[in-house]
Design a protein around this nucleic acid. Structure first.
Lengths: 243, 243
DNA sequence: GTTGACCCTGACGCTGCGTTATCCATTATC
DNA sequence: GATAATGGATAACGCAGCGTCAGGGTCAAC
């Protein structure tokens, strides 16, 4: 699947991305960017996906999010790349404008204006926007509950979850009450229980409603299972938990 | 001299400049921004000059200079505000442009371009420019030689030095060889010896040539002593050291 | 004279790496 | 196939630039 010729060593990855090797080591250490693979002798290897993740990381970093925040956002299985990019662009635009204000201030100072104006240094506006972004992108409650696990598990778990929804997406032509569908729901429940927390029927029911109502859940689920998967999942869960 | 009504407490200064009180404490601690005065009970008070210095600090900080670098630049008696502002503006423009590149990248990513391009994250260009700036603004050799002294002494010493040149500026109508002028030169030599390092005639001679040749010295000296002071000082020093 | 807002000085903690130091792996060269 | 050069790994320490208590003075108001 992964083309060996496309795998990069640390040094190559570092040069390409203009970060230090140490930084890659560190990002590995804190679970922010795991190498795609490691050779028998422990050498880190990075593929295109890893580099893409690194791009995202660097974008967030430029916007002054902490590494922990970045990890939480990127590892959230309901992370929505499109939306993230849009918000990032908005923030970058603010940043640019902000820099312009500083230029204006410097120009004023150069001309001798002795203005005691520090508004150009005020970053609360951006901070507020970032706060909203944090809320929007912040790890879901379910996800937050399991901070203990190691990073590799987390990142895999995210993919696994989405795989379950993808599988569900192949059953859209059936009734939500169909046994095959109901079995998928049960698998979801078991997966959550196994990896995060005991997922009672009650909790599962709550999740189902979230999937149907919250836009960000819906988008991400539909992205993996096809349009309508989220709504379908909600119905199926409702039936499952009512029994 | 300083109007009491214009003095700000830490909290007021912090609010005005949008930095934390802790930051002001810290800047005091490392000698980056000394309060204009302290009340008998130790309360820090900041006047307009201090706030202006803070503006400069924040500008430099935005450009990612370290606090130590900032202090060295601002405390250098040959610091040239005009030139600094120009360079800062240039750097800010670069920064803005840089942000724009990231916006472009994000837009490309949003449209699905799977470009493996990290050039937008490359800051070496800016770094290089900053290096030049460092050289230009970096503490002069003389100044660097005396890292030991405490910050208050440093900042005062800068002003005192310039006062000597200002005094010299009042003697421009005389011959450089005039006793009054020569005495000023001797005072300069003594001041340097007392505050920095033993200033032999040879060293003094070297300084004189620097004053005459280096544009940044010339500008700063002339700014305090009036046009022609630097050249005048150079001549006077030459005469002084030849005896 | 006491309350509340404000100030101080430590001192410890944290993030995001830079910087050795020391040792294994791989490759190129002889 | 020996050896040097190059590249990789881990471990450990260090540092800047503050945030964040903890413990304790000050000062105006009431």
């Amino acid at each position: 699947m992964t083309n060996k010729t496309q795998m990069l060593t640390v040094q190559q990855a570092a040069r390409l991305s203009h970060v230090s090797i140490r930084t890659l080591h560190y990002y590995h250490q804190v679970g922010l960017l795991l190498p795609t693979a490691q050779t028998k002798s422990g050498y880190r290897m990075y593929d295109k996906n890893a580099m893409k993740r690194l791009q995202h990381i660097l974008l967030f970093r430029k916007l002054k999010f902490s590494l922990k925040e970045i990890r939480q956002m990127l590892d959230d299985p309901f992370f929505n790349e499109q939306e993230a990019l849009e918000k990032q662009i908005a923030l970058l635009e603010m940043e640019k404008q902000h820099t312009q204000q500083l230029i204006d201030l410097a120009n004023a100072l150069r001309k001798g204006d002795k203005i005691m104006n520090f508004d150009a240094f005020d970053e609360s506006e951006m901070e507020q926007f970032k706060q909203e972004a944090r809320k929007k992108w912040g790890r879901t409650a379910a996800w937050q509950a399991c901070e203990k696990k190691n990073p590799a598990d987390m990142q895999n778990a995210g993919k696994d979850m989405m795989q379950l929804f993808a599988d569900l997406g192949t059953l859209l032509h059936l009734s939500p009450a169909h046994p095959a569908v109901q079995q998928q729901v049960q698998q979801l429940q078991q997966y959550i229980t196994a990896h995060f927390y005991p997922c009672t029927n009650e909790i599962l029911s709550g999740l189902g409603q979230m999937y149907a109502q919250d836009e960000r859940f819906r988008q991400n689920i539909d992205a993996h299972g096809g349009p309508g998967t989220a709504a379908f999942a909600a119905k199926a869960i409702e039936i499952f938990t009512k029994e």
